[in-house]
Design a protein around this nucleic acid. Structure first.
Length: 274
DNA sequence: TACCAGGTAAAAA
DNA sequence: TTTTTACATGGT
């Protein structure tokens, strides 16, 4: 299988940890020790390889998508150098050497994924989202293509309620599907402008906008301070035995600049490891 | 059974 | 303007 190289050190195992716990769904499938995704209408398999990952098939269309999916834009070297001077973060980064956070490939999918995860556990969110993907997505060998916005724009919200969405969330998803063509343009905007545009959409608040910056656009300074998991992880490492408030976590952003996004991911993974 | 889990908008105060 | 409430699923 053709190899897509990634800068050393790279750990496929650590980088895909999220997919083996709560992060995988039918559109980003963890199957037989590899990642399966539909790219350009075809199922692509990504697995561990020396010096990077094996990708089958590795076409001109597939390569940039897989590079984005695997978080290739992150500058891990600069982050490690930064963290080395931090007494708490330093050992975390050293222990998780080679962790390159995965990114969500598609803006519409990223936002729908966030909507499903609002307020409920990630486990429950994945169960509901998989019913959505199964119902409206197209299946290849193993993975499904995430439902197209044109398809979801045409459904009655009541159909989504039958899949486990609240009435509110069902309206959010259908409304968002109608705006999907505008989402590609967000990549050209600065962080604050992206947040403002997203938060103007019904159903998308600051939490969702922050995760969009972090997990879809891979913006280095994204810092989802309001996220419960982030708050717990930051508190565990920096709270001195106490749960920090959203405002306290938000105020810590500057300390990790310009590596807030990587810091969040490393602390989250470190908090989940035994 | 009740409560919590990687929020948000709308109602009530 | 700020605070409170309803919401749906799945695990404990």
């Amino acid at each position: 299988m053709p190899v897509l190289p990634l800068p050393e050190p790279y750990s496929f195992r650590l980088s895909t940890e999220r997919l083996r716990t709560w992060g995988a769904d039918l559109a980003t499938l963890w199957h037989e020790e590899g990642v399966h995704r539909i790219i350009g209408g075809r199922e692509v398999r990504i697995e561990e390889a020396l010096g990077g990952v094996s990708v089958e098939p590795l076409t001109e269309e597939v390569e940039p998508v897989v590079r984005h999916l695997l978080g290739a834009p992150f500058d891990l070297g600069a982050f490690a150098a930064f963290a080395a001077a931090e007494p708490v973060l330093g050992p975390v980064v050293e222990r998780l050497a080679g962790l390159r956070p995965l990114l969500l490939a598609d803006p519409f999918e990223a936002l729908v994924t966030s909507i499903t995860a609002q307020q409920v556990s990630l486990f429950a969110a994945t169960a509901v989202r998989n019913r959505l993907i199964e119902r409206y997505g197209e299946r290849a060998d193993h993975a499904y293509a995430f439902p197209a916005p044109e398809r979801l724009a045409a459904v009655e919200p009541a159909e989504l309620v039958a899949l486990g969405f609240s009435h509110r969330k069902a309206e959010y998803v259908v409304g968002l599907a109608r705006l999907a063509p505008e989402l590609d343009g967000l990549a050209a905007l600065r962080d604050e402008e992206v947040k403002a545009r997203l938060q103007a959409v019904r159903g998308l608040g600051e939490w969702t906008a922050d995760w969009f910056l972090a997990r879809h656009l891979g913006r280095p300074e994204a810092w989802p301070a309001g996220d419960l998991g982030v708050r717990k992880a930051v508190s565990a490492f920096y709270g001195d035995g106490r749960e920090l408030s959203t405002e306290e976590v938000r105020a810590m952003s500057a300390r990790f600049a310009p590596f807030q996004n990587l810091t969040v991911h490393y602390l989250l993974v470190a908090g989940r490891l035994p």
